[in-house]
Computed example of a mutant assay.
Amino acid sequence: MKLLTSLILLPMLMLVGCKGQERWISLNFSGPVTHDGRVLPPASARSHESQLANQFEKMGIAPGALKIRRDRDDQSVVHIKMVQGALDAQQQEAIKSYLIGLIESRRHANFRMSLTTDKTAIEEVASKLSMAGMKSLVTFNTLGYFSVNLLDPQSLKPYRPGDTGERAVCAVTLRLQRPTSVSYSSIERIEGAAFSGARKPNVYGEVRSLRPSMPEQLMKVPVLLSIEDADLRRLLNEGRLQVHFQLEPPQRSWGAWAVPMYGVENISFTLTSIDVSDIANPVLRYSRMHQQCTREVATLERPFSFQTGRGLDSLRDAVFWDEP
């Protein structure tokens, strides 16, 4: 029995001894690269192995300096071995820094945003509509994941003007960590306004006066929508995305001097509209359209690429040669 135990432990001890001398990295991705439900082979141009090789070549690493292999037991894991003497210390650290950068970027990506209403605007609303109670700042903290879904374009006006008929809108929906409320019955972007670090209003918030026994009054208020993630701001400014707050109507009556508060539990980003499939089976029809939307979302780059697609942004963690 002791002999058998020794024979089992010997290869493991030899491997541990080798790791101290070799330069190696193990990468854990969120999943293998697939197409039509099948895992792509390492030789495929879209595999993690090929994507890594292309990226390292762009960094000036000679193709023969690295051996990139997929784990035999887990196809989400890729191992990189540095050929002895092929890379200098600076190149080794460059590879390590690049991979750590991917993981850190994924960790810090977020969809945090806030609505700031200028105090002067609040005073103007209170004066014209004889209303009070508006908040000057509302912060939206979203959960760390999102869902891809289909939305009715008619419910997204004025975010998707012109989307009518038998078309559905591809959207990414985020759920808030805690439901909140705003003083606006609708929120729409100011035409030409940018999402940036500048403190200039970029959306209009519509305030509705719903006091009993009086005609309804409306007022548009310029509001600043601040978005923390720079990549998300870029996509919105390029017109590849549009933001939509899914506002729920007030659940109770309000007094003469109060502003109705509309509930917010979800925020959606819409990206494109697609034709409704003519497949008769409703379940299969939705499934096909959902797949199409998922592919569209995967092209959006960061911060969406951290959770969609199977690019290098899907790297979750790594173990390096100098770690225990």
Rank of each mutant, 00 (worst) to 15 (best):
P161Y: 00
K157S: 06
P201Y: 13
A194P: 05
C170S: 13
V203G: 06
Y184P: 02
C170Y: 12
P179M: 15
R199N: 13
R199F: 14
E188P: 02
C170V: 15
S185P: 06
V203P: 00
R199W: 09
S183L: 03
S186F: 03
C170H: 13
Y159I: 08
T173E: 06
A171V: 08
P201F: 12
K200G: 11
S196C: 10
R189F: 01
R167S: 05
A193F: 06
C170L: 12
E188W: 07
E166A: 14
S186T: 10
P179Y: 14
I190H: 06
E188R: 13
T164F: 00
I187Y: 06
T180L: 04
N202A: 06
I190D: 01
R178V: 15
K157P: 00
C170M: 13
G162S: 02
N202Q: 07
A194R: 09
T164M: 03
L174E: 01
S185E: 11
R199V: 14
S186Q: 09
S183W: 04
A198D: 15
D163K: 10
G192R: 15
F195A: 12
N202C: 09
E191Y: 07
L176A: 13
S185R: 06
T180V: 11
A171I: 09
R178E: 09
V182Y: 02
A198C: 08
A194W: 01
T180Y: 03
Q177F: 13
F195G: 11
E191I: 11
P179D: 09
S181M: 12
F195C: 10
R175S: 14
S181N: 10
S196W: 12
E166F: 07
V172I: 15
Y159V: 05
S181L: 00
S185N: 05
T164H: 07
Q177V: 13
A168I: 01
G162V: 03
K200M: 11
V169N: 02
E188F: 04
C170K: 07
Q177I: 09
S196Y: 13
V172M: 13
E188C: 00
R160E: 00
D163N: 00
G165V: 04
G162W: 02
S183M: 15
T173K: 04
S181W: 04
L174D: 07
F195N: 06
V172D: 08
R175D: 05
A193T: 09
Y159M: 03
F195R: 06
V182R: 05
K157E: 04
R189Q: 10
C170G: 13
I187E: 01
E188Q: 08
R160A: 12
R189C: 02
A193V: 12
I187G: 08
F195Q: 05
G165A: 04
V169D: 04
G197H: 14
E191A: 11
E166Y: 06
P179R: 12
G192F: 11
